[in-house]
């Protein structure tokens, strides 16, 4: 209840508040931290306990050890996969928002492109990956196209939903002011649509690294997906786990960046959710 009267946007939180906030976060997250610690401890000690061969499942310490020996390659490949992911994701956002807005405002597109997109959404996009590789070769382009493909649909479908769900009252209100469509768009429609658009952006951020990795599995000579498939073939699960760790970092960074952008661009939305709790 006290949250209701807490200012959320322009107030300057003192460093003391930030510190107590951090401590509170640690305090509320202690169960999760404990869970992670126990999980890795169990993993570490169950390997010798159950006598698991290291070519099946290596211990976490061994993964760190062997992984650090290969760190240069891992970092370089993270850059390669990261570039594919980010370029594809950025293109998907531009195309997704563009088509989403166009479909929301055009009844012709809503009757043609929209059902077309909905039906394609049912297709597992990743099934196109071998085709793209065969058409465009082993380079950056087919990976970017596949990332665009797996990111585009959640973005465009959420954008259509976002731009079509303006409340009846706000629609009547802006009509009654006689404001031109451009002004209405930037002052009402666009900000009102942002929260739902971010649902699509976040979902797509999760898809993005999946798309890049699978594209690299199918045909490439660099990148983390390529690395994982090669080292697994060489019976080196320790290095495969190191690759998976860097992929996870990549995915978390992208998701974290999108969440940060949400906080910066629509701070009112985050706070509203908090208050409504």
């Amino acid at each position: 209840m006290y949250m209701r009267f807490k200012r959320y946007s322009t107030n300057m939180a003192s460093s003391k508040n930030k510190l107590t906030g951090f401590l509170k976060w640690i305090a509320s997250g202690w169960m999760l931290i404990l869970f992670f610690v126990l999980f890795f401890l169990f993993w570490e000690y169950s390997i010798p306990l159950f006598d698991v061969p290291r070519y099946i499942l290596p211990a976490p310490t061994e993964i760190v050890q062997k992984g650090s020996a290969d760190i240069d390659k891992l970092i370089y490949y993270t850059g390669v996969t990261g570039l594919e992911t980010i370029i594809g994701y950025a293109i998907a956002i531009i195309l997704g928002l563009g088509f989403g807005i166009a479909i929301s405002f055009s009844s012709i597109l809503r009757r043609t492109l929209y059902p077309f997109f909905v039906s394609i959404e049912m297709t597992p996009k990743i099934a196109f990956a071998p085709l793209f590789i065969s058409w465009f070769g082993f380079g950056l382009l087919p990976k970017v196209i596949i990332v665009v493909l797996v990111c585009f649909f959640p973005i465009v479908l959420n954008a259509i939903l976002a731009f079509n769900s303006l409340s009846n009252e706000l629609t009547l209100f802006h009509r009654s002011t006689g404001a031109n469509p451009l002004k209405t768009f930037f002052k009402i429609r666009l900000p009102a649509a942002m929260p739902q658009c971010f649902v699509g952006f976040k979902y797509a951020a999760i898809n993005a690294t999946v798309g890049a990795t699978i594209a690299e599995f199918i045909g490439s000579d660099q990148g983390l997906g390529f690395y994982i498939s090669i080292v697994t073939g060489n019976m080196r699960p320790d290095l495969a786990f190191a690759g998976i760790f860097f992929l996870t970092l990549l995915g978390l960074s992208l998701f974290g960046f999108v969440t940060l952008m949400e906080k910066i661009l629509i701070p009112w939305h985050i706070s509203m959710k908090r208050i409504n709790k």
């Binding site: 409340s167 009252e169 706000l170 009547l172 209100f173 802006h174 002011t177 006689g178 404001a179 002004k183 209405t184 002052k187 009402i188 900000p191 009102a192 629509i266 009112w268 939305h269 509203m272």
Partner: peptide
């Protein structure tokens, strides 16, 4: 209306200004 036309991304003052801005 019964459901108000205040937008959550603007302050009270900003919402009043919205009326003026939309009307140029």
């Amino acid at each position: 209306f019964q459901d108000n036309t205040l937008v959550p991304w603007r302050t009270v003052e900003g919402n009043i200004k919205l009326q003026l801005e939309l009307r140029n």
